[in-house]
Design a protein around this nucleic acid. Structure first.
Lengths: 249, 249
DNA sequence: CAGCCGGTTTCACGTAGATTATGCCACCGG
DNA sequence: CCGGTGGCATAATCTACGTGAAACCGGCTG
């Protein structure tokens, strides 16, 4: 509630995101804008949800980039998903009391906390929104499935290309991509934690992709130079994102 | 509807399954039992949902074993999940119109088709059940996340042990495990498709697990001989299954 | 009984990617 | 200008796992 301007743009991003997977009525839009939020700024690498927590609020990402991850004994970590503004990555805590992963900001970010109580009131009064939130968590699961395919069966280059395709499509959906150029403050180590590879191998493959003229990546920016080529390299089919018509381009 | 006795036991399995992740009121139980179903027998390997379908019914698995999977260009396939009686593995088709995976029976099985219309009526009249179904799809997603960790970061033995732990816990929850012995008609090829390994490597690792006295596996039966050992080998923590208290043993 | 047939086991060999180590560059505070 | 730090690049070695082919085995059917 601390900054009206930023909060407003946060709501906008949420509406864009939800409208990318479903239609919203004007009452639903209005009701969403009435959700009370508490804004919090995060520095790079800061955790805002811990594995094992029992939260009473869900988080809407307003600015920046975030990930779900889980640590393993042995010190490794697996990043489970990336999230961009408009996402509510721990919506699930509404129905699953105990968190089974942590969440962390990648680069400076901003989240809005929304009390579970408000969300429950909202979904009770607007069953259509409950369905849309449910749908969103189902799309989330579809993305996990696609990552499983990558981790299980695709080689390193294909995985990386696929991830970049997915992120670019998501950026486009919430109007954060400018000519297939979007802010993506990811390090190669973080990429390797997401893709199940070693950092050095990510480095090699990244250079291959650059060398093939498909992308530019670095200094917190991803730019896709050859969309069709990247799609082919990543064996990417956006069906699993279940976007509304016209957004899948 | 073809066999009252079997249908009845199918409902029971569904109730057990749902009660393993949430409490049911007696009205909710009764309403569930009133769901109209159409029973269908499947032979081993038979597909009952196709990638790209737009279904108007969801499937409740009554008997046997089933999996979600997706084929890749190049002929490979990735199995995304296994399902045992009581599961409704394509509940998601209620809110995501187009299927993004196929489903197939592993060994002879039986499914019950439930019309989406009936499910929508049910969840409208019993919002508590809508929540429970939502919760079930969220647990599903949590299982995907755990598989991602396996595929990305665990070695072959750990993955296999983890899978066996998970399946045994699920079998226990619906009373299909007898002294940690349960029917599991899986071939080594199917295991390899699930774990992102080659069949020969699955064979090697399987023998290691047998050699270590942890399990017996073959001829369609899985028997856990040393639960604690298997849990250690698989780095298994049942939290992600979000079971009701007492079932996680 | 022969003859499969699906599934399993074993072998020999190849390779993608992990690991470790080291060096580079850009940026930042003093 | 200096040293410190975080991210990136590169090369040498190692290993877990893949590939392909062949032998094996228990359970069927004819």
């Amino acid at each position: 509630m601390q900054d009206l301007l930023q909060s407003a743009s946060g709501y906008d991003r949420l509406l864009l995101k939800l409208e990318s997977i479903a239609d919203l009525s004007s009452e639903e839009r209005a009701a969403l804008r009435r959700l009370p939020i508490r804004v919090r700024d995060l520095s790079a690498g800061e955790d805002f949800v811990q594995d094992g927590d029992i939260p009473t609020e869900s988080c809407l990402l307003l600015e920046g980039l975030a990930c779900r991850y889980k640590l393993l004994e042995g010190g490794g970590r697996q990043i489970l998903s990336f999230h961009i503004p408009g996402d509510i990555p721990d919506m699930q805590s509404l129905h699953l009391t105990r968190m089974d992963y942590s969440m962390s900001a990648l680069g400076r970010s901003q989240v809005a906390y929304i009390p579970h109580a408000s969300l429950r009131t909202l979904t009770r009064e607007h069953p259509g929104l409950a369905e849309i939130f449910w749908r969103d968590t189902l799309v989330d699961a579809a993305i996990f499935r696609e990552w499983m395919i990558g981790l299980g069966r695709r080689d390193a280059a294909c995985r990386l290309a696929h991830l970049f395709c997915e992120l670019m499509v998501k950026f486009r959906a919430v109007h954060l991509a400018n000519n297939d150029k979007a802010p993506l403050p990811l390090t190669q180590v973080e990429l390797s934690d997401a893709l199940g590879l070693s950092p050095v191998h990510v480095n090699r493959v990244l250079q291959d992709l650059r060398g093939a003229g498909l992308i530019r990546f670095g200094h917190g920016v991803l730019e896709v130079l050859d969309w069709q080529g990247l799609v082919r390299a990543g064996d990417f089919d956006p069906c699993y994102l279940h976007l509304e018509e016209g957004l899948a381009a």
